[in-house]
Design a protein around this nucleic acid. Sequence first.
DNA 1: CTGTGTCAATACGGTTGCGTATTGTCATCC
DNA 2: GGATGACAATACGCAACCGTATTGACACAG
Lengths: 231, 231
Amino acid sequence: MSKPSKPKGAAPIIKPKKSKPAPTPKAQLGPEDWARAALAAIQRDGVQAVAVEPLAKILGVTKGSFYWHFTHRDALLAAALRLWEQEQSDDIVTRFQAIADPRRRLRIMMFAAFEDQENGLLHAALASSSEDERVQPTLRRVTETRMRFGIESFRSLGLGDEEALRRALFTYSAYAGYFLLLRAIPESVRDVSDLSAYVRYLANALLPEDLKGDHSPKSKPGLKSVAQSRK
Amino acid sequence: MSKPSKPKGAAPIIKPKKSKPAPTPKAQLGPEDWARAALAAIQRDGVQAVAVEPLAKILGVTKGSFYWHFTHRDALLAAALRLWEQEQSDDIVTRFQAIADPRRRLRIMMFAAFEDQENGLLHAALASSSEDERVQPTLRRVTETRMRFGIESFRSLGLGDEEALRRALFTYSAYAGYFLLLRAIPESVRDVSDLSAYVRYLANALLPEDLKGDHSPKSKPGLKSVAQSRK
DNA sequence: CTGTGTCAATACGGTTGCGTATTGTCATCC
DNA sequence: GGATGACAATACGCAACCGTATTGACACAG
């Protein structure tokens, strides 16, 4: 009967500061630890690897304690997806929305997206599990947010709706495909040693110089040669 | 959720067995029926859906008869992968190797690849299951074959090794990513009504006019607006 | 010291899918 | 018309997970 119902209900006038986590640095596990472990499992073996007992083994506990933090397995998956989605959103909002010039914004976004291999591989893993109806909504929201952002940026460049949509889809396909391949057959991708040249190629194909915006040639972002995926 | 039509309910209907005596048209199931069903299951729900009992239910039999055709579950998966790989190889060899001009060959290959949605989605499903070590070898072989073919074609265009590799990877990423997105979030891709314009975009980005080879402008393949994937 | 809240371990029952064993049903061959 | 070969059904045992129930360990508050 000891359900994890919030016992702070009645009248939280006083704030017993030390009735919770501060003194214990990392001794016990919390829901977020499970969610992060779930994300790691997804990146490694796909959504189906989000299983309670194996994860418990990884975390060094038994599943008995899992059901203290979550009601059921799907709640863990939902928490992991929420965590991922939020980090993605934070990312895109805080880092790129501020850049006024759409041309610069797109270029920087492209480089940043390909630079972050960790996140790219996680995206590939989640997109690879799209047959799972539990990930689909989150995946769709994230995809649509990014696509909308890309479409808007391309439209700000002076392109028509059709063309903006086409280029946004093109960009996103190249992104998703690159990391899908990197995840599936890293050997075939590893040979491309100069990833920045690869992305520059993508940017130049989609952002021709004759459109508008500044003419920053190449050495623009603080991004160097980002390549290798040595493990 | 179309339930398998099992006519052996309350009605004492005798099994409508084909009374065809001589050539045994299609009354009974063979290994290839199972392999094709497995491929269909992969395309729908990923490699993990290649499970004996569910497939038996779909095929209208019980797993008892499965083990007549295959020694174990993995043998079925192997057969399905072999079938896929062979069809892929046949495809690429018979259809494109004959085209002498690399420029034309690449262009036609691009259009053909994007035109064949069925195969593209199947490829996406298999690439999405790359965490499964049983599909990895097949997937790697197919990928490397295609990549090699692409690299060679680009090199024939007069490009250096690095550049050829880069463009081949670019092309293949765009292909894989497009179908990954189409599989994962068809709504976001469906809006691009003019797929041929999309592919033409890809081709023009990677096959600039000023290189070499013939100058066949545009009205090449009989590919029009191929988009939506209504199921 | 005792109570309570928080996390963890153990044990149990249920479901799904694998693989095996055994038996059944035809169609065909002799 | 029996034997055989090709397929199919049923029934088991086994393992992986899910979810529940119960109890244990331990920190801190009163």
